[in-house]
């Protein structure tokens, strides 16, 4: 390698690196900001249109009034991760005479969303909540009552502002806070 070739190659590398000093930073402060790329929609299955709605596949949301206790979700999940077990819930449910509903063990769930595809009664959805860490395994077992309520707001300390990714050829990729 000639000395001039070496020098020009080396200077180009340094220039490429230095340019990043003036570019915006791509990383974001995680617990304070959260990227939610998908539209604000629940992930759910539309049998009529044979498709899923676009949404992140996070914690499930169960509609207790629509669930018939047909066990299709449990049967599907048995071959996947075995996260779903049916449990009995006290109370009157006109569509669900036996009163059995799915409970989901998030220590096992792989968030494939195929249980949502299996539910033909429009009762099971997925929310964009992915922060499910707990101190012990038992707390990861969510009963039907728990998954029928929308996810709780995260504690104030880690309450996230939603961010979106801006792709700019000149200034680089960076995140800004989402408007809504």
């Amino acid at each position: 390698m000639k000395a001039s070739e070496f020098l020009s190659g080396f200077l180009k590398v340094v220039e490429s690196g230095l340019r990043h000093l003036v570019r915006k930073r791509m990383t974001l402060r995680y617990p304070e900001f959260l990227v939610v790329p998908a539209p604000d929609e629940l992930f759910g299955f539309k049998p009529g249109e044979a498709r899923d709605t676009n949404g992140l596949r996070g914690r499930h949301l169960l509609d207790l009034d629509r669930c018939t206790g047909c066990r299709l979700c449990e049967i599907t999940c048995n071959g996947i991760s075995g996260a779903i077990t049916m449990v009995k819930v006290e109370g009157q449910f006109p569509r669900n005479k036996r009163g059995i509903f799915p409970s989901i063990d998030y220590g096992r769930c792989v968030f494939c969303g195929l249980c949502v595809d299996a539910c033909i009664f429009d009762a099971l959805f997925m929310t964009d909540r992915e922060e499910l860490a707990e101190y012990d395994r038992a707390a990861l077992l969510y009963g039907p009552e728990e998954i029928s309520k929308p996810p709780k707001e995260l504690p104030v300390k880690i309450r996230a502002k939603r961010a979106e990714l801006i792709l700019d050829e000149r200034r680089g990729a960076h995140h800004v806070q989402r408007k809504n």
């Binding site: 998908a38 676009n54 968030f111 997925m126």
Partner: peptide, 8 residues
């Protein structure tokens, strides 16, 4: 982008 399309 893939998460936007597929959810994961």
């Amino acid at each position: 982008l893939a998460a936007m399309l597929t959810g994961a």
